[in-house]
Write a protein that binds this DNA or RNA. Structure first.
Length: 324
DNA sequence: CATCAGGGCCCTG
DNA sequence: CAGGGCCCTGAT
């Protein structure tokens, strides 16, 4: 799409996350690949959001500190937003960035754990995030499968260019996601031409699952983890690796660490054992032993801390694992 | 130039 | 439950 929609109206909403809350550690994840629907500067985060059939621009500004958190959500739109919709958008942002979860028990049980403590000194209050809806995350998970990271980025950007849109707000232009119906209407061959390869079929079937009368993300959020996991695994193209990302990032299940993919396996081998390669069951037992029901939240903080440190410290072993 | 694995998953036997 | 096949691409 070459035309750009300009979002000139703004609405504001103050949000007060549950302390402790780390703004930068929650809104920006340096281990995630870059994509054109997001922008970050310390204390500030921008994204587009397709919600209730419209495309919005969002900006979040940090107004607080870890122990007294506060943030301003600014909603950019092409028409005035009714107050009730402002509340629904704020609630969606709060869910995606896990703003209101109480982590008191986590810090009581894991705050002094020796391997985690150094990372917590830097990132106390970090939470899992999902920048996107469930449907949009499935697209990202599909692009990640059996591809080196450079190619995954290419796939997502090709999809944005063909099915997404460009929106301009707050002095910047970002990509916005399409709706599942846009992919339902697209021929599989068109998706293949965008270098999706055999994933074209997967994208079509996932879009079908989210069309009118399809999966209801709000309802899935209420499911217990085992039922949620089996529902997600039932989606075409979603296997153990993708569901591992989904349970933690999208659905904030802090104990969802029953599987590890090869790339993460290499990194956790180094982080936990200072070795090149440790067998998966050994890693999974170790995180259970150290952090119990908080194991994925704890591991995530350790993992992201590594990628933050990478920006300042030379880490040749890690660079070798990141092919961009 | 050819071959291969990659931040998997489906399908078959 | 194991293993072949799948689109494409940079690395070797």
């Amino acid at each position: 799409m070459s035309d750009t929609k300009v979002l000139n109206y703004t609405s504001e909403r103050l949000l007060t996350p549950c302390a402790p809350f780390h703004f930068d550690g929650t809104f920006h994840k340096p281990s995630y690949f870059p994509s054109s629907d997001l922008a970050y500067q310390p204390g500030h985060f921008w994204q587009t959001m397709r919600f209730e059939g419209q495309v919005f621009g969002l900006r979040c500004d940090n107004l607080g500190i870890v122990e007294q958190p506060a943030l301003r959500l600014v909603i950019f739109s092409d028409a005035p937003v009714p107050p009730a919709q402002v509340e629904r958008i704020a609630a969606e942002v709060a869910y995606r960035y896990d703003l209101f979860a109480d982590h008191t028990a986590f810090y009581a049980e894991c705050g002094q754990e020796e391997m985690l403590a150094p990372a917590l000194r830097r990132w106390r209050g970090m939470r899992p995030n999902s920048n996107t809806s469930l449907y949009e995350f499935l697209v990202i998970a599909t692009a990640l499968q059996n591809a080196a990271i450079r190619r995954s980025i290419q796939m997502i950007e090709n999809l944005f260019a063909r099915y997404g849109s460009q929106v301009t707000f707050d002095g910047m232009t970002l990509s916005a996601f399409w709706a599942p119906e846009d992919i339902q209407a697209a021929p599989e061959e068109e998706l293949r031409a965008l270098k999706m390869g055999y994933r074209a079929k997967t994208l079509k079937r996932q879009a079908d699952a989210f069309g009118p009368g399809g999966l209801d993300e709000a309802r899935l959020r209420e499911l217990p983890s085992d039922a949620l996991k089996s529902t997600l695994m039932g989606l075409y193209g979603i296997g153990p690796a993708s569901v591992w990302y989904l349970l933690f990032q999208v659905f904030k299940r802090y104990d969802a660490f029953e599987y590890i993919s090869p790339w993460e396996q290499k990194i956790y081998s180094r982080l936990l054992f200072d070795q090149d390669w440790v067998e998966a069951p050994v890693i999974l037992d170790e995180v259970e032993r150290r952090w119990g029901r908080w194991k994925m939240l704890a591991a995530h903080i350790l993992f992201e801390d590594l990628f933050w440190r990478r920006q300042h410290e030379p880490m040749p072993w890690l660079e070798a694992l990141i092919r961009r």
